[in-house]
């Protein structure tokens, strides 16, 4: 669901690894778009493309031509280590939900809770877990459910900066 609520938005610290660059194999030329004619939907049954492997960096006309950097597995995700220590903030049980689909506009937060990667709780404010995040996602939100006579929800946002290892630290 999506909802809107006023909060004091707090960006979580994102611990950066030493800059070592990511990727970098396979040549430096930017990849141009495939020729327009090749983007038209094929109405009949074409034969599989059998063109020989082209030189690295050039636009392939078939997947078969693409040279995959050694060791690259086309992994769909990257890992984010959630590290929560709110012992000094909350003395009661709180719930922790990390979600990917959210928006924050002028401190108004809207979260789609169907997009959560984690549902957890802690009695002492301490919790940690590794999360697998899809490559296209660059930010996460932690919704902290505060139980009590008047329940409330607090938030922390994490944004991907730099390269792995990624840590979502919450203090």
């Amino acid at each position: 669901m999506k909802y809107v609520e006023r909060i004091n938005l707090c960006l979580a610290a994102c611990i950066l690894s030493a800059c070592g660059g990511g990727g970098g194999g396979g040549g430096g030329d930017s990849i141009s778009q495939p020729p327009v004619v090749a983007q038209v939907a094929v109405a009949s049954e074409p034969s599989p493309v059998t063109v020989a492997v082209d030189e690295p960096g050039a636009t392939a006309s078939a997947t078969q031509e693409i040279q995959v950097p050694d060791g690259f597995t086309l992994a769909a995700n990257y890992t984010v280590s959630l590290d929560v220590d709110l012992e000094s903030v909350y003395s009661q049980r709180v719930s922790l939900s990390v979600c990917t689909d959210f928006s924050t506009v002028d401190s108004l937060v809207s979260i789609n809770y169907d997009s959560c990667l984690l549902k957890a709780s802690t009695n002492n404010g301490i919790f940690s877990s590794d999360l697998e995040v899809g490559n296209a996602l660059d930010s996460l939100i932690l919704a902290i459910g505060i139980f009590g006579e008047s329940s409330a929800v607090d938030y922390r946002v994490w944004e991907r900066v730099g390269s792995e290892p990624y840590v979502f630290s919450v203090r």
Binding site: G21, G23, G24, S30, A60, T63, Q67, P69, F72, A75
Partner: peptide, 10 residues
């Protein structure tokens, strides 16, 4: 897809 592969995900 090609640039994703060629850059090893970069």
């Amino acid at each position: 897809f090609q640039s994703f592969i060629s850059s090893a995900g970069g």
